[in-house]
Amino acid sequence: MKEKKHNFCAGPSTLPQEVFEQLSKAVINYNDTGLSILETSHRSDSFLEILHKTQDLVKDLLQISDDYSVLFLHGGASLEFLLVPYNLMKIGGTGAYLDTGRWSSKAIHEANILGNAKIVASSKDKNYNYIPTNYHVPTDADYFHCTTNNTIYGTQINEFPDIEIPLVADMSSDIFSRQMDFNKFDLIYAGAQKNVGTAGCALVVVKNSILGKTDRKIPTLLDYQKHIDNGSLSNTPTVFAIYTAYLNLTWLKNKGGIQGIEVENNRKASFLYEEIDRNPFFEGTARTEDRSKMNVTFNLKNTDKENLFQELCDDAGISGIVGHRSAGGYRASIYNAMPFESIEILVDTLRKFEKKLN
């Protein structure tokens, strides 16, 4: 059996080893029920207990008020690009958007299908390698949407505007990774396959009081209020993905929650960025003050040596390090479950590459 690789893929990402082990047992026999978690009914007491405990964990970890509902929905974060305007944009209305990369651009595209997506600021002029500042959010917009962390370009938002309209955030790649006042946001959504669990569903955290104000007829499976009323059971939910989220968030809770994991995440990111900045053969791609602590993007200064670097990565058991096809270069995704030992292996590989060329 091959040794476990160091998975730096942007998603589906690595999970804690103990979660893998718990999942493997549940696939054979969940909680000694005589049933696999894969065949457990979504209407059973066993699954309903999982669902409710997972929703409670989300609320506990984010420290959100009772005015929020927690949903697990199909379609990943990409479907939320459409559900947000469906549920928040009035007929003929406007959504204000901060354009910081590929995923915010896709959200803007979906919003324009229903109404008007007004771009308040964009970093497209420099291939999204920074976060715009000093922009104005129109007070007559129905909501303001931002992507908190940009997986492809390695940037992350550190400050959010104080506004009177609903604040919406796609937190797919950095939710549960750092402390902030999550009550500041009226709607948070995240694809599960990075810091929540496995691919197949999206986590949605929505303030109940912002719903039902669009006068729009919303199809049942696109209506947040219908999903709230049905307890995330409007159709068969992603049982396995939700169970994975339960195990993963329990692991996070036991590590000291978001406060505890933020310390580890800061340590991992600092260690890797320090080596990239020190090593004469590599360079970071994101503006220093906007660097992501989840997705570290960098380039080889001499692209003729790509094969050598790839050979060293392969020898070290490093997987998923190649950058997104639209950006090139390299990307190390270092989400919550990525152990510090894997960062050490990557840094050691960068140093070995340096020695090979000196």
Rank of each mutant, 00 (worst) to 15 (best):
A241M: 04
M294A: 13
G34H: 09
L272G: 00
T198F: 01
K106R: 14
F47G: 11
P85L: 04
L350R: 01
P237C: 10
V322W: 03
L233D: 04
I119Q: 03
D60G: 05
C9D: 13
K194D: 12
D186S: 13
R178I: 02
Y243A: 10
M338Q: 04
D170A: 06
Y86G: 00
D170F: 06
N87I: 07
S78M: 13
Q156R: 12
S69G: 09
Q22A: 15
T155R: 04
T151Q: 12
L82G: 05
E49V: 07
R102G: 01
K53N: 15
F47E: 07
N336G: 07
V137I: 15
Y86H: 08
H42Y: 15
I228W: 01
F281H: 15
K90S: 12
L82N: 07
T155I: 15
V58Y: 08
K106L: 13
G154M: 09
V27F: 13
Y153E: 12
G200S: 05
T288R: 14
R267C: 01
T236A: 14
V137E: 06
S173A: 10
Y143N: 09
S105D: 07
K124T: 03
I152H: 11
V263L: 06
F309E: 04
L73N: 05
P219V: 05
M180E: 11
S319M: 14
V196P: 03
N7V: 11
A192I: 01
I242H: 02
N129C: 14
K194A: 12
S46F: 15
N336V: 06
L222Q: 05
E21V: 08
S209Y: 02
D314E: 15
K90A: 11
F144G: 11
S270C: 00
K213W: 01
A111R: 04
S326W: 00
T40K: 10
G328N: 10
T151L: 14
R291L: 12
N112W: 03
F271M: 00
D304H: 14
D56W: 09
R178L: 02
F298Q: 10
K355D: 02
Y97E: 01
T236P: 08
Y68N: 09
D140V: 10
L252S: 05
K4P: 13
A117G: 15
N265C: 04
A96D: 04
M1S: 14
A111V: 03
N127F: 08
K213F: 01
P85Q: 03
E311T: 14
K124D: 07
A332T: 02
L233C: 13
H324T: 05
A10D: 09
C146F: 08
E274N: 00
